[in-house]
Amino acid sequence: MLQLRDLPTPETLQKFAQRYPEADISAISSFLHLLRVATDLSSALDECLQRHGLLQGRWWVLILLMREESLSSMPSTLADKAGVTRATMTGLLDGLERDGLVERIFDAQDRRRVSIRLTASGQARLDQVMPDYYSRLRLCMAGLDEAQRAQLQAMLGHIASNVDAFTR
């Protein structure tokens, strides 16, 4: 994915706004900064997880399974919760199973029906990753107090509610 490393100056944005009257300079600037920070956070998370031999997609699947009381879920449910296609989830699960971090449990009455369960090795991997992740996350968010964090979540919620403006 292309990452915009050089954000436009206010003068550059003004030039665009003169050509495109629909342009809202402060909205553009805020959006580009948010996109840049989100990209940087995702890259930093990738780097952190790679130290533990994980990729983000696989890590999220392990997290989703750990959230379940039974430590198991259906592949289609995992795909829905992760926001990926079922084919993508199958690929993630294949890799996790190959590494012994999850196991497929086939239904005794219907072998076509399968659930995915977090293994002891998968839990051990999470137990290795999560303290490091939480320490880094705490440092990343250290500049914001609780009120600012709540305000940030509210602002992000407002933005999230309008994301479909790009798809309508």
Results as ranks from 00 to 15, higher is better:
residue 134 Y to C: 05
residue 132 D to L: 05
residue 150 A to G: 08
residue 64 L to R: 13
residue 9 T to Q: 14
residue 66 M to C: 02
residue 80 D to M: 05
residue 54 L to G: 03
residue 135 S to H: 13
residue 158 H to W: 12
residue 98 R to L: 01
residue 55 L to R: 15
residue 108 A to R: 14
residue 65 L to P: 05
residue 29 S to M: 11
residue 86 R to T: 11
residue 95 G to K: 10
residue 8 P to R: 04
residue 156 L to S: 06
residue 21 P to C: 06
residue 134 Y to R: 05
residue 73 S to Y: 03
residue 122 G to M: 01
residue 29 S to P: 02
residue 54 L to E: 03
residue 42 S to A: 14
residue 127 D to V: 00
residue 29 S to N: 14
residue 152 L to V: 06
residue 61 V to T: 15
residue 77 T to W: 09
residue 14 Q to R: 13
residue 49 L to M: 12
residue 36 R to C: 11
residue 115 S to F: 00
residue 9 T to M: 02
residue 19 R to I: 04
residue 89 M to C: 00
residue 142 A to W: 00
residue 57 G to Y: 04
residue 22 E to I: 11
residue 69 E to Y: 07
residue 23 A to T: 15
residue 59 W to I: 01
residue 96 L to H: 07
residue 121 S to P: 04
residue 79 A to M: 05
residue 92 L to E: 01
residue 132 D to F: 00
residue 55 L to A: 13
residue 3 Q to P: 07
residue 27 A to G: 09
residue 147 A to T: 06
residue 44 A to H: 05
residue 72 S to W: 10
residue 73 S to W: 03
residue 76 S to V: 01
residue 10 P to T: 07
residue 74 M to H: 03
residue 84 V to H: 07
residue 59 W to K: 02
residue 33 H to A: 01
residue 15 K to H: 12
residue 56 Q to E: 12
residue 1 M to A: 09
residue 72 S to G: 04
residue 110 D to N: 14
residue 15 K to A: 09
residue 31 F to K: 13
residue 45 L to F: 00
residue 4 L to K: 11
residue 160 A to W: 07
residue 77 T to R: 09
residue 45 L to M: 07
residue 42 S to K: 14
residue 110 D to G: 04
residue 91 G to C: 06
residue 30 S to P: 00
residue 61 V to Q: 09
residue 85 T to I: 06
residue 157 G to V: 01
residue 1 M to L: 04
residue 53 G to Y: 04
residue 113 R to V: 03
residue 150 A to C: 04
residue 24 D to Q: 11
residue 140 C to N: 00
residue 45 L to S: 06
residue 109 Q to H: 03
residue 130 M to T: 13
residue 43 S to R: 15
residue 44 A to S: 15
residue 139 L to S: 04
residue 20 Y to V: 09
residue 10 P to V: 10
